[in-house]
Design a protein around this nucleic acid. Structure first.
Lengths: 152, 152
DNA sequence: CTTTATCTCTACCTGTTAAATAGGGATATG
DNA sequence: CATATCCCTATTTAACAGGTAGAGATAAAG
């Protein structure tokens, strides 16, 4: 299971990305809309800002906007911000490789091989699908991060 | 990352499954071979027994043997014993479904949809690949759970 | 029938993390 | 200058990971 923190981050990102071009969204509004504890959400939005994904405006009529286009932000990237490495085994992580204490030979390790396959399969999805894709595929057809399509 | 507990369980299972037909393997031997804390491993082996995967013999010259053939035991099944549901979101778990508090509409939830894809991809691997498969594909060509192949 | 090697069971311990909660400080707008 | 917002840090509570510890049950060997 992914953490609530990560899930709230996706909610927030999708909401900000789906907002009309140029309009900002406040943490309070997002929290209300999705029933997320407000102060907790603030921390999360701050993390997204520090990661260079969101930008913010302070003061009255402040709020959050996308800093990068939604279709350049993959689910994998966001997940890694909040969950750390996605690899199921330390020896499978490119970013933060660590040897397994109980491993006799990495090259022949069956566990590593099988989980490597599972990891590849899941990464294929998470690192290719973006926030923009998710909105575009949405029933309501959000269109953040790309040109507007004519509907009808 | 999967827990050490689960990883140790796979080590143990693969070792027992790879043992010559009819021979049992002691927890001490497995612990020594893979540098796993012995008492911790004992708990794990007990869990595998309670799950109906391993059988055990007590007393001198005791040890563990497979209760079911290795090629009927998927990585997913074992993982679920030690990690609980594999679904990345509670609303994606068939076995222990739970609604997300912050979800407005499950049918249109972009998070659910995207993680559903990732989950499907990873489950495709974990629920189809078995301990027996993993040994068969091994460089050294273990052959537990199926007829012996001639190596020439 | 005693010793010894094994599995079985239960309790406990320590550090880390999840999931908030709390309380203010900084800043922009009206 | 009042208010609404974002910004930052500390604290709390519960659960969980990853063991450690000690004793009991059982079976084989001598």
């Amino acid at each position: 299971m992914i953490s609530n923190k990560a899930k709230y981050a996706f909610r927030a990102l999708l909401a900000v990305a789906a907002a009309p071009e140029g309009e900002s969204l406040t943490s309070a509004e997002i929290a209300r809309r999705y029933n997320i504890p407000h102060k907790f959400l603030e921390q999360i939005l701050l993390d997204l800002k520090k990661a260079g994904i969101l930008d913010s405006r302070r003061g009255k009529s402040g709020g959050y906007v996308m800093l990068r286009p939604a279709d350049t932000i993959s689910f994998g990237e966001v997940l890694r911000i909040f969950e750390g490495p996605l690899a199921p085994l330390p020896c499978l992580s490119r970013q933060s490789y660590r040897r397994c204490e109980d491993c006799v030979s990495e090259a022949t390790c069956e566990i590593r091989r099988e989980f490597g396959r599972a990891y590849d399969a899941s990464r294929q999805v998470l690192d290719s699908r973006t926030i923009g894709d998710a909105l575009a595929d949405s029933p309501y057809g959000g269109n953040a991060g790309q040109e507007r399509r004519l509907v009808g």
